[in-house]
Design a protein around this nucleic acid. Sequence first.
DNA 1: TTCAAATACGGAACAATGTTCCGTTTATCA
DNA 2: TGATAAACGGAACATTGTTCCGTATTTGAA
Lengths: 210, 210
Amino acid sequence: MQEETTGTKKRIRSDAARNEDAVLEAAKTVFATSGVDAPVREIAKTAGVGVGTLYRRFPKRSDLVVAVFKREVDACAADAKTLAKDHPPGEALSRWLRRYCRFIVTKKGLASALHSGDPAFDALPDYFRSNFEPALQNLLSAAAKAGEARSDIDAYDLLRAIGNLASAGSTSGGKAGGNAGDDPEHHEGMQHTYRMLDLMIDGLRYGKSG
Amino acid sequence: MQEETTGTKKRIRSDAARNEDAVLEAAKTVFATSGVDAPVREIAKTAGVGVGTLYRRFPKRSDLVVAVFKREVDACAADAKTLAKDHPPGEALSRWLRRYCRFIVTKKGLASALHSGDPAFDALPDYFRSNFEPALQNLLSAAAKAGEARSDIDAYDLLRAIGNLASAGSTSGGKAGGNAGDDPEHHEGMQHTYRMLDLMIDGLRYGKSG
DNA sequence: TTCAAATACGGAACAATGTTCCGTTTATCA
DNA sequence: TGATAAACGGAACATTGTTCCGTATTTGAA
């Protein structure tokens, strides 16, 4: 994403790069802990940085939100490739669907911001789709070719279906409780979501044919 | 809505009543002009009132939003009765559907607030439905009985359909432009919405039978 | 009509937040 | 090592929601 040896311009100063990363990491944590509406100051403090530093890189609060969102979309999409390399096609597919499920639940708070009408977020749905659809399509195709999944499922349909599943299953509200032992992975709703997801995965395996 | 001679408690002071009304009226105007996110101060100023006065009646900003919303739902639902009294059933029906259409377009900004997850607005969808559904049902039944509309249409379905129609047709964004000659009645989108609505109304007339 | 008590009023003041500014510190490079 | 450009930190500013309280108004009775 960043130009390092592109030569067209000076290199980014090392402390600047370090801080940009720290801010993104902090923002990810704080958004998950206190919701997307968490104050900028809290993020800056978590990152061990002044607000001025944060604002140089992300002139608007929404820019930070967008950056975090994209970064996590990237990470989730990248996992698709990793999983495809480390597992047999069917296994890679079902593992990634769980991974995607977790992504959706985590981003529950963001979702409402996305549809808030703020033009700052207009580009995100496209970003979401243009990264996830091919990622899933690859997994799907590979699994189908290996005879481990049916081939008549549209990747985008599946993304939407699981998205609905996961966001309906997680308890409402924007911010996570943040209390000890509060791992979302073990919430009742999350378990329910996983069960429903398993159902869909089974559906993908059995009707296989096309 | 307000108790005047209920005797259980003192009467509301006249200036208080006057101001409450002024604030609601101002809020309605300001919400339409600057969007639901308009500052409380702007509403107070428009009403010719101090913020303290506004806050005594509406302790939370959201209380004011809710009050305005309900008031307009009431007004729109009341128009159903008026129209039914002043026009033949089919005419009353189609006139009210246009009226409802206007309501939806005006409340476009509110709609996103409603689904923002703020618990303050939780009661509004019910309020909406429990007022509009019977209102429309009456018009539909009367028109059906008079042979001016089919009788196999569900009031709530129709409300939703027109709601979608109208909110899709109006240009996006929360606030109205507010420039001169900006009457929403004459916007391109509104005209389009009316044309679609006419289509539905014709549909109601012709397939009549049940 | 006049007066006292109850009630409501207005807007300054407070708190929380996003954002900007600028004097100070640090990284880079010769 | 020192000059310079870049980045830093956080105080200060602007905008809001909300609270407080001294002042003005309404009301009911004398």
